[in-house]
Simulated scan of single mutants.
Amino acid sequence: MAASGSLTKYRLPPLPTIREIIKLYNLRAEKHLSQNFLLDLKLTDKIVRKSGHLQNAYICEVGPGPGGITRSILNAGAEELLVVEKDTRFIPGLKMLNEASNGKVRIVHGDILTYRMDRSFPGHLRKHWEEEPPNIHIIGNLPFSVSTPLIIKWFEQIANRDGPFKYGRTQMTLTFQKEVAERLTASTRSPQRSRLSIMSQYLCSVKNCFTIPGRAFVPKPEVDVGVVKFTPLIRPQIEQPFKLVEKVVRCVFQFRRKYCHRGVSILFPEEKRLKFTEHMLMSADVDPSLRPTELTIAHFKNLCDVYREMCNQDPNLFDYNFREELRMKKLCFKPEEEEKDLL
């Protein structure tokens, strides 16, 4: 038997190497698409092992490119592999893998940011949310340019149990720039604690699995890459609508180097700002002198719960937009006063 955590004994027939595929089809990584090829099959195997037990699993691979991770997924014994690839140059190589795997690869030419995954897998795979995750996995070496908007989209679908999460608590194993991977998993008081930390951890169990050095990619990116695994929680740590949570967290981290009361204050129109900010912080039992990086998810839960109550009392409050107010007044922050909203 195969050792625990190792790939199964199923192997693809002999195929051209990834380097040979790149040469055969004259493939070059496009800088404007943030493409970086991972050619080391030991590393692609490691990514797949971190994804979990994939024997007879149904997988969606995002941006397979020349097919390095694709081969490792097939060698792990996947039942069916759906690949979503935007770049038509890679389709012939993926068709070769489909033929070599006896039709296990289903190729979709499309943009993962707009592709609907709610009907991509057989209905019998559905699990109740409270059960173990379904035998469905999302795996991908994500282009840097789409990684953050894509994971935010999936977080919202987790909150709404939509998209690939209609089937249950579908697990994801994805690559990010090392800095983004650290933000996703950063703990309270960590210098990397950010908006992205809260949005990921209130919805998922998040694990930074390992780091891939930039030199392993072709072309070599300027940064290393982190592999992160997400498992949606049975019960989110903040039980409020996703858009509300996102707004509160975004406002608080808008001024991540200042005290948290500064970010909370921009949730409210100017004429109500001082009174409402004091009420929200006091009701949520949050010390106004804490920095955003010092706030726990429990703090954010309390802030969101109180803000929801205030929005229920004043239905127009949620629609208030601080930046729109500034625009209408034709005002702007001075560069030294404006804080970058770090994801």
Rank of each mutant, 00 (worst) to 15 (best):
I112M: 15
R28V: 00
T296D: 11
L38W: 03
K258P: 01
I238N: 02
K330A: 04
P13H: 12
K272I: 13
L150Q: 11
P191H: 07
V84M: 01
E222F: 08
K247T: 11
G93A: 14
T8D: 10
G168P: 03
F155C: 10
L74A: 01
Y202V: 15
T44N: 00
S200D: 08
S205A: 05
R291S: 00
N321Y: 04
L281T: 07
T277A: 05
L274V: 07
E222H: 09
N321E: 09
D287E: 08
S120H: 14
V206G: 10
S200V: 03
L267E: 12
H53N: 14
K258A: 02
R235P: 06
T293V: 06
R273D: 01
R169H: 00
D118T: 15
S51Y: 07
S190C: 04
T114E: 15
Q240L: 06
E271D: 14
R49W: 02
I107P: 15
T211Y: 03
R89P: 12
L82M: 09
L97H: 12
C332F: 11
I47Q: 10
F333N: 06
A186I: 09
G67D: 13
T88N: 15
P191Y: 07
N56C: 10
Q237T: 06
P288D: 12
C304Q: 06
P232T: 01
T185L: 02
G67M: 04
I151V: 15
M310L: 13
I22S: 08
P288V: 14
N321G: 03
S51D: 07
V249G: 00
N316E: 12
R256E: 11
G93F: 01
F242Y: 15
E309N: 14
P269D: 03
A216R: 06
P133I: 01
P143S: 11
V105G: 08
A186Y: 05
P133R: 00
I139A: 09
I152W: 14
V264T: 05
S147Q: 15
V180D: 03
P134Q: 13
N302C: 05
E271S: 03
V286G: 06
K9F: 10
S197I: 05
L150F: 15
V83A: 11
L54F: 01
T70I: 02
D118M: 06
L142M: 15
V249T: 10
P92V: 12
L290R: 09
P133Q: 03
L38P: 10
E79P: 14
Q201M: 03
Y259A: 07
C60N: 14
G65L: 12
L27P: 12
R193A: 06
R28S: 07
I21Y: 00
P221Q: 05
G65A: 05
N102Q: 14
N98Y: 02
